[in-house]
């Protein structure tokens, strides 16, 4: 076997392996999509492709809870949280990376320390706080406690530290204020890190379950995850394809956005670790 055929074989092997692994990762999603269209008795042990496509599952799931509202709530909460985290992290990271001030190590430590605090342990004290603010059943309760991120500060500070100082000088010469420098130059230059932060923040906000449940009582303020989790109520539900249809409804919008902007997503997420 000469080097060329060996290379060809290697290439074939890599191709086969890539395809196999891709399919393994996609299989659960595929199963979800097909299962959501099945009859309850066809889900386990029945054929993989539904013999009859049960669109009724979706109607039933859609009518059993205001999923439209839930999704919009999730979208609003996750977007605003992402925006605020980006802002607060950029400001703090700028101070940490470009200014000298007393207690600077302490400030950085405080930011990093929040990563170590098991968030859900703070449920009750935080519940009391937002209640004192009158924020129960409001977007405030879902957004403000998460408007700053230790990880975000850490990520952007590292990115800023690695940005050449020559930029600062030219900005100074042009008479830029610190804020215009930060928003017009420093952040755009570090767009990859910022979009990494945005993707991760958006996803973790979208994912949140326990806090949104505690902080809201009414459907007007429920998020999609809370609405979906309540579907898994043993006493009430045995129609699994309907649960799968609800899961489909909640999952597909994000997946769709993801597949449309796959390259951007992956490149963004990738830059979160690069500058470590």
């Amino acid at each position: 076997m000469n080097a060329k055929t060996r290379h060809l074989w290697g290439q074939r092997g890599l191709e086969a392996l890539s395809l196999l692994i891709a399919l393994l990762f996609l299989a659960p999603l595929l199963w979800l999509f097909l299962g959501a269209f099945k009859a309850p008795d066809g889900l386990f042990g029945g054929p993989l492709i539904p013999p009859r496509w049960e669109w009724e599952n979706f109607l039933e799931a859609w009518h059993s809870a205001p999923f439209g509202r839930f999704l919009i709530n999730s979208l609003i909460v996750s977007s605003l949280t992402t925006l605020l985290v980006g802002l607060s992290s950029a400001l703090a990271a700028f101070a940490l990376a470009r200014m000298e001030f007393p207690l600077k190590p302490l400030a950085f430590l405080l930011a990093l320390g929040t990563l170590m605090i098991p968030g859900d342990a703070l449920l009750i004290p935080n519940f009391l706080t937002i209640r004192n603010f009158g924020w129960i059943n409001s977007y405030w309760a879902l957004i403000v406690p998460f408007a700053a991120s230790g990880f975000g500060i850490f990520l952007l500070r590292n990115a800023f530290l690695q940005t050449p100082r020559e930029l600062d000088d030219s900005a100074r010469l042009d008479g830029a204020t610190p804020l215009t420098f930060l928003f017009r130059i420093l952040l755009p230059v570090n767009a990859p890190a910022l979009s990494a932060l945005s993707v991760l923040t958006f996803l973790s906000s979208w994912n949140a379950l326990v806090w949104p449940f505690v902080a809201t009582n009414r459907n007007e303020w429920r998020t999609a995850q809370v609405g979906l989790a309540s579907f898994n109520n043993i006493e009430g539900n045995t129609d699994i394809p309907v649960v799968l249809a609800a899961t489909f409804i909640v999952t597909v919008p994000v997946l769709l956005v993801y597949f449309l902007a796959q390259k951007w997503f992956i490149e963004s997420a990738a830059s979160s670790g690069l500058k470590g």
Binding site: Q11, L14, E15, S18, L19, I21, A22, L23, F25, L26, P28, L29, W31, L32, L203, W206, N207, L209, A224, Q225, L228, A229, F231, N232, V243, L244, T247, V250, T251, V254, L255, Y258, F259, Q262, F265, I266, A269
Partner: peptide
């Protein structure tokens, strides 16, 4: 490989699926 983009997309896709959805599936 021919499947490079597919593989990248597939491996990262579960990351955008929520914990609740993943658990249910």
């Amino acid at each position: 490989t021919r499947f490079q983009s597919l593989l990248r997309g597939a491996v990262f896709a579960p990351v955008v699926v929520s914990t609740v959805s993943a658990a249910l599936i």
